[in-house]
């Protein structure tokens, strides 16, 4: 028991570089595997949360752009969404990494982008923006006509109409799909350290450590189920948070017409 507390103290924050430098080499205990994979989750949460928050704003803009009547705004948004939804995230990571490497040689300011904490975040941010924008765009198109007519009748227009009527309705309609997108994004964060971005001083994410253990012990039956259980916990947290927001978005509707969150786990992007 005490040994385990010591292990947690040594490796609990290993993923961000605090604690023992060397990873355990042999005689892996269950405690070590739990602690290290758990500390790797810090990165998954970091990538997921930041990309989600930043992507939310950008996705709203993109969705509005795609729904706009002006061609100069619509075309770039459509292309952006197509580019990031049409190609595998894995290839995007690789391309992003080598692009940043190249840019670094010309503009030294791009140096931090070749590290995972910023470079991968940027790629994830663009990717989730594109997917979310498509969801929001679908929701924008299915806003009931009556809602907008009612807003017009109240004399709302422009920004105030968007803020009070269109935007909340769009969110309400898009929310179940957006929840899936969020879960999906957290799963996608596991790709980061397998796609060019180096894990500096072995500071990797949960899957990085899980595959480290699987490689060392030749036993996939312990680290991967641990990883899976961490992810199921994370997914449950995401669902919990999103359903609170969902309840707030739907609070004006009668209880029997409210949209329920339907969780459809997706596979890969």
């Amino acid at each position: 028991m005490n040994a385990c507390v010591q292990t947690i103290a040594d490796y609990g924050l290993r993923a961000i570089g605090i604690g023992k430098r060397l990873l355990p080499r042999e005689d892996f205990t269950l405690c070590e595997q739990f602690t290290l994979i758990g500390s790797g989750m810090i990165w998954n949460v970091y990538f997921g949360v930041l990309a989600l928050i930043a992507g939310f704003g950008f996705a709203t803009l993109l969705a509005l752009g795609k729904a706009s009547n002006t061609k100069t705004v619509r075309k770039p948004s459509e292309w952006f969404i197509f580019l990031f939804r049409g190609s595998p995230l894995f290839i995007q990571f690789f391309f992003g990494y080598f692009l940043f490497l190249k840019l670094k040689t010309v503009f030294p300011i791009f140096a931090p982008f070749t590290a995972a904490w910023l470079g991968a975040l940027v790629v994830l941010f663009f990717n989730t923006s594109a997917y979310t924008a498509e969801i929001f765009y679908g929701a924008l198109r299915s806003i009931p006509k009556g809602d907008i007519e009612a807003a017009d009748a109240y004399g709302l227009s422009g920004w105030s109409r968007f803020k009070h009527v269109i935007w909340p309705t769009m969110l309400r309609l898009a929310w179940p799909a957006y929840t899936n997108e969020a879960i999906f994004l957290f799963h996608a964060t596991t790709l980061v350290f397998f796609s060019g971005f180096p894990a500096w001083q072995q500071r990797g994410d949960a899957l990085y450590y899980a595959s480290y253990f699987a490689d060392k012990t030749f036993n996939p039956f312990i680290p991967y189920p641990i990883l899976a259980s961490y992810f199921i916990l994370l997914t449950l947290c995401v669902i919990g948070l999103f359903s609170i927001v969902n309840r707030r978005l739907n609070r004006h509707l009668p209880a029997n017409t409210r949209q329920r969150l339907r969780i459809r786990p997706n596979l890969i992007r």
């Binding site: 799963h187 996608a188 596991t190 790709l191 397998f194 899957l207 899980a210 595959s211 699987a214 030749f218 996939p220 039956f221 991967y224 990883l227 899976a228 992810f231 199921i232 997914t235 786990p265 596979l267 890969i268």
Partner: peptide, 19 residues
């Protein structure tokens, strides 16, 4: 199969199947 997160399944399954 749908409940288990994505690439972990791929990494896991190949070694597991082999073994």
């Amino acid at each position: 199969v749908r409940g288990v997160p994505d690439i972990a399944f791929f990494l896991f399954f190949v070694i597991a199947l082999d073994q």
